[in-house]
Design a protein around this nucleic acid. Structure first.
Length: 454
DNA sequence: TCTCTGCTCAC
DNA sequence: CAAGTGAGCAGAGAC
C-alpha cells in the first residue's frame, strides 16, 4: 500500500513498527551468540529468550506511547533564559576587558589564565591537548579568586540547559502524535543498561532549580491522566550488600536505615544525631566510590580533602563492612580467571585488559570488574520488572501507559481511575522482579508533572 | 561536511 | 595514573 493512502495514525504506527523491527533485528544479531552461550552456562535462564526479546516489545510500546511535554512553557522559559544570557555575557565581557566566545573552552582558558592571570595559588590544570582546563571542578576551586568565575559557571549552566533541553525538546515533538518519542537502545552499553537518544530522556535535569523547571514540562496526556514515577531506593548499594553478603551492610538495610547516615555513624564512631551534613556527604561519596572502584586520590579530588583523610575514610569503611572489601577482591579474581565479569542473571562483560601488564589498563579493567556486576544486576532487575508490569497491564486491560525508564526509575502516564491499581502492580512487580538478601524498596509518587511525581 | 575535543546533564 | 555507565551541544580544525 502507498504510504500516502494510509491514515495519519496508521502511518505513525508503521513508523514505530519499522523501528521495532530494526531493534529486534539488532538485538538478534548482536546478542544471540553471546546470550545463548550464557544460557548453556547458567542453565536456568535465558537472557536472550526470557529477558531481551520480551523487553524489546515493551520498549517498542514505550517508544510508541511517547511522552507529552508543555511546549509553550518551554518556549517561555527559553525567552527568559535568553535575556539572562545576554546580561551575563555583558558582565563577563566587562570583567574580561574584551568580548570573546564564552562557549569556546580554548578562548575562555586564554582569557582566564593568560589575560586575567587567575591561578588561585595553584597550578593550572591542562587538558589532553595542552590547553588550560576550564572544567567545572577547576573553576569551582577558583570561585572566590575572581568575580568572573561564578559568572562563567552560571553561563555554562544556563546555556547547557537552554541548548540541550529547553530549545531542543520542542523540535522533537512528533507532529502526528504531539508527543516526544525517544529511542531506547538495547545493544549499546557494556553493562546491560539501556541507553536513550533522540532525545535522551535519561538525562533530563533535576538538580538545580532551573533544571526542575524543565522536569515540570513533562506532563500527562490530558486532564484524565496523571504521571506516576516509581524508583528503586539505593538499588546499587542494596545489590552490593546482597552480592557481598556483608552482614553489617545487609543489617543496615534490613533495619530500614538511611544508609549514608548509618554508615557515617559507623565510620566516624558517633551517634547518628551527631552526624553533620558534611560528614554524611563525605560518606555518600565513599558509598558511590565503592561501587565505582574507588581510589584515595579520586575521593580526595571529589571531596576536596587530603589524600590521608580520603584513605582513612575508605579504610574505616572497609573496617565496618569487611565482606565488601572481600567481595571486591573476589570480583577481580573471578574476572582474572574467566576473562569476564558477570551479573546476577548471567550477563557478561568481557575484560580483555584484566591481566594486562599495563598498570593503567589493568586498573581500569579491575574497576569494571567490580562495577559491572552491581550496575548490570540492577539493570537485570528493572528489565524483569518492566516485562512483568507490561504483562500485567495487558492482562488487566489497563489504558495507562509505561512511558519512560531512567535506569532505576519507571514513569507511567496513568489513567486516573486506574491509579491505585497501577500503584499496586508497579510496586509488587518492581520489588519482586529479582530476589536479593536485603529488602528492595520502591518509592512512588504521582502528580501533574514529572517533578512532583518523582 | 565530518570528526574530534571539552564540557555537562542524568543514574 | 587517579570514580562506573551513557548522550548531546558548541567549537575547532581537517577535508
Amino acid at each position: 500500500m502507498e504510504k500516502a493512502l494510509l491514515t495519519n495514525s496508521f502511518a505513525v504506527e508503521s513508523d514505530f513498527i519499522l523501528n521495532y523491527s530494526c531493534e529486534c533485528a539488532d538485538v538478534l544479531f548482536r546478542l544471540k551468540d553471546v546470550l545463548e552461550s550464557e544460557l548453556k552456562n547458567n542453565g536456568l535462564y535465558s537472557l536472550f529468550a526470557d529477558m531481551e526479546m520480551p523487553l524489546s516489545e515493551v520498549l517498542f510500546v514505550m517508544e510508541k506511547n511517547g511522552v507529552r511535554i508543555d511546549v509553550s512553557e518551554l518556549q517561555n522559559f527559553s525567552r527568559q533564559l535568553a535575556e539572562q544570557k545576554v546580561k551575563l555575557e555583558e558582565r563577563i565581557y566587562e570583567l574580561a576587558g574584551e568580548s570573546f566566545n564564552i562557549s569556546s573552552p580554548k578562548q575562555l582558558g586564554e582569557i582566564l589564565f593568560t589575560r586575567l592571570q587567575i591561578a588561585g595559588g595553584g597550578k593550572t590544570k591542562k587538558t589532553s591537548t595542552k590547553q588550560f582546563s576550564t572544567a567545572e571542578d577547576v573553576l569551582q576551586k577558583l570561585i572566590n579568586v575572581h568575580p568572573i568565575i561564578p559568572l562563567i559557571l552560571e553561563y555554562r549552566k544556563l546555556t547547557k540547559l537552554k541548548s540541550t533541553y529547553i530549545d531542543a525538546l520542542p523540535n522533537l515533538v512528533n507532529p502526528k502524535t504531539g508527543r516526544i518519542h525517544t529511542s531506547y537502545n538495547q545493544t549499546i552499553t557494556a553493562t546491560g543498561r539501556l541507553s536513550s537518544n533522540n532525545p535522551n530522556l535519561q538525562n533530563i535535569p533535576i538538580r538545580t532549580d532551573q533544571g526542575k523547571e524543565i522536569r515540570k514540562c513533562f506532563i500527562p496526556a490530558n486532564e484524565d491522566f496523571t504521571l506516576l514515577a516509581a524508583d528503586y531506593s539505593q538499588i546499587e548499594l542494596r545489590v552490593i550488600a546482597s552480592l557481598s553478603g556483608d552482614e553489617h551492610l545487609c543489617e543496615a538495610f534490613r533495619e530500614g536505615e538511611d544508609i549514608h547516615l548509618a554508615t557515617a555513624a559507623k565510620i566516624y564512631v558517633k551517634d547518628k544525631s551527631e552526624i553533620t551534613k558534611s560528614m554524611r556527604a563525605n560518606v555518600k561519596s565513599v558509598n558511590f566510590g565503592i561501587i565505582y572502584g574507588i581510589s584515595a586520590f579520586g575521593l580526595s579530588q571529589q571531596l576536596n580533602i587530603s589524600r590521608k583523610e580520603a584513605s582513612d575514610l575508605i579504610e574505616q569503611y572497609f573496617e565496618n563492612y569487611p565482606r565488601v572489601r572481600q567481595y571486591i577482591e573476589e570480583c577481580k579474581q573471578i574476572a582474572r580467571e574467566r576473562g569476564y565479569a558477570q551479573s546476577m542473571c548471567g550477563r557478561r562483560r568481557y575484560l580483555k585488559d584484566i591481566n594486562s601488564l599495563n598498570v593503567n589498563l589493568k586498573s581500569f579493567a579491575e574497576r569494571n570488574a567490580v562495577n559491572m556486576p552491581v550496575q548490570a544486576s540492577s539493570a537485570d532487575m528493572i528489565k524483569l520488572a518492566m516485562i512483568a508490569i507490561h504483562r500485567r497491564m495487558q492482562t488487566e486491560g489497563l489504558q495507562s501507559k509505561m512511558i519512560m525508564q531512567v535506569h532505576d526509575e519507571l514513569v507511567f502516564d496513568v489513567y486516573k481511575p486506574e491509579l491505585e491499581q497501577m500503584k499496586v502492580i508497579v510496586k509488587e512487580e518492581m520489588e519482586n522482579a529479582l530476589k536479593l538478601n536485603v529488602p528492595i524498596v520502591v518509592e512512588m509518587n504521582s502528580g501533574e508533572n514529572w517533578l512532583v511525581a518523582h
